[in-house]
Amino acid sequence: MDIVEVLYSAVRVSTPLVYAAMGGLLTYQAGMLNIALDGFMIVAAFAGIATAFATGSLELALIAAVISSVLLAALMATFTFRFKADIFIAGIAVTFLAYGLTALLLKGVLGEDGVFMSNTIPRFSPIVLPFIADIPVLGRILSGHTILVYVAYLFIPVIAFALYSTRWGLRVRMVGEAPEAAAAAGVKVTSLKFQTMLLSGALCGFGGAYLSLAYVSLFANQMTAERGLIALAAIFFAKGRPLPTALVALLFGLATALSVRLPQVTGAAPQLLQLIPYVVTVLALVIVGVRTARASNKHGAWKFALD
């Protein structure tokens, strides 16, 4: 097994997780548990491939993907803020709506059941990074990806900057931790939450477009394969800080890459090895759970069963 090749594919595999995680951590920092990341990505994946198929333009496809996913995020925000739905229920509703709608349109517009692919769909071509490509080992891992991979990793510092160095970011984080304090200081709490939700949609739009146009070149029902939930696990593990969240997402990506490569070398049942990324996710959540339990129940305080 070629380690460099596994790492190269980890970067590739982690890309949609990074998009979803960056989107999800914005809402997390604003104090919302957004479980509709999969829903956002699946409409984007569909809108992307349908537009690419119809127009032959990847740029238009990307725009369509982002717009469709932002619209879904706006719907989610409307449920939550306008109609005061529980954000968890709204998230489930939006996700199921997205799964159902894309399956319906797949049949209705593209005339396919389950999977759509076509040779006429344009693909993102790999870009060789100047200078970096020449670095031994590292160059082979980091270079030669499509533009959407680079954009995903560029979003990490951008979002860190936005959250920690700007007025907007301070307000978002305050809204997340102490909404009443923010409101009392004249910060428009709902408006900021709305903004982070739309941005979450936009980032998932990139993630969805990446899935159907770059990672593979096809659309399949529920092809996001719960990447949104895995991204949420990364966010919780890293407490919503951008760089650590991205690193955890990369770890999950590495686990996936391993689960694809390991069967070839070990001869173990591939079905078993495909569990690796999910086992890693569960382990991460167990750590989060133990950590929270310790933090809240330490020093002998009574544990209320319903907490």
């Binding site: 301070l170 305050m174 102490a178 409101a183 200081a185 910060v187």
Partner: peptide, 19 residues
């Protein structure tokens, strides 16, 4: 009931809304 965010600094809490 103080409207403050405990994990932020004094300055951040004070300037919030008029940064």
């Amino acid at each position: 009931h103080f409207k403050l965010a405990p994990s932020f600094t004094v300055a951040e809490n004070i300037v919030l809304g008029a940064e």
